[in-house]
């Protein structure tokens, strides 16, 4: 079970991971977009760490809502409304709850996917963050249904996300700034799919670490 304090620690790990991969994510974006994905996202998660995580709201819904609003107002690029909307949708699922379990995560990610699809007017296969998030959600839902342990389930989700990132190299972009490049976007991996996979891998490491640390 995750309470507000442990969720805040996890979100802090995500902020640190984004910060450490900031230049790499921007480099990926430089090839097919405006080159600011890593820097924008790091700005947003740094603001989350400063404003939201220092004194986390015990209500998980309110905590995730504050994360979403902070990302929306500080990221600057498309990742702001996209990740922001994803967090707002997940917040709705957790409204009034002080604890969540791994079994809640597939439903949360499903809500996030709905938000990103609506905001980005995108579907799977368009070289976006959905290409890593949707396979990860499916893998996680299957693993939870199969009764896998949390660390094994999250490992499968993170692997599915990373396979999704690799898949984005093979397809052309039809959404966002990268769509202006058309065929020339093929061969490059999508920065949004990459940051989503990074976040899922960080969740897996956090849960594996907290189990090992018990």
């Amino acid at each position: 079970m995750l309470d507000s304090q442990s969720l805040a620690t996890l979100l802090g790990d995500i902020a640190a991971a984004v910060r450490s991969q900031r230049d790499y994510l921007s480099e990926l974006d430089n090839a097919i977009g405006d080159g600011d994905h890593g820097h924008n996202l790091a700005k947003g998660f740094d603001a989350v760490a400063e404003k939201v995580l220092v004194n986390p709201d015990p209500d998980l819904g309110k905590l995730l809502q504050q994360v979403g609003m902070t990302l929306i107002s500080t990221v600057g690029g498309a990742a702001g409304p996209l990740y922001g909307t994803a967090f707002l949708r997940m917040a709705t699922q957790l409204a009034g709850k002080q604890e969540m379990a791994l079994a809640d995560l597939p439903q949360l990610l499903d809500a996030a996917i709905g938000g990103i699809k609506q905001r980005g007017k995108a579907e799977r296969g368009e070289k976006t963050m959905l290409d890593s998030l949707i396979p990860a959600q499916e893998a996680l839902a299957q693993a939870v249904a199969d009764g896998k342990e949390p660390d094994a389930a999250l490992e499968l989700a993170a692997q599915a996300a990373e396979a999704g990132v690799a898949y984005t190299r093979s397809i052309r972009a039809t959404k966002g700034r990268a769509s202006y490049l058309g065929e020339r976007s093929v061969g490059h991996q999508d920065p949004g799919a990459t940051s989503t996979a990074l976040i899922l891998r960080t969740i897996q490491r956090h849960i594996a670490g907290s189990i090992a640390g018990r």
């Binding site: 600011d36 700005k43 609003m69 107002s73 600057g76 409304p81």
Partner: peptide, 14 residues
Amino acid sequence: GGTADGRLGTDATA
């Protein structure tokens, strides 16, 4: 236009 800290970007709350 731009972000609160002066970068290029947009802010839905603004």
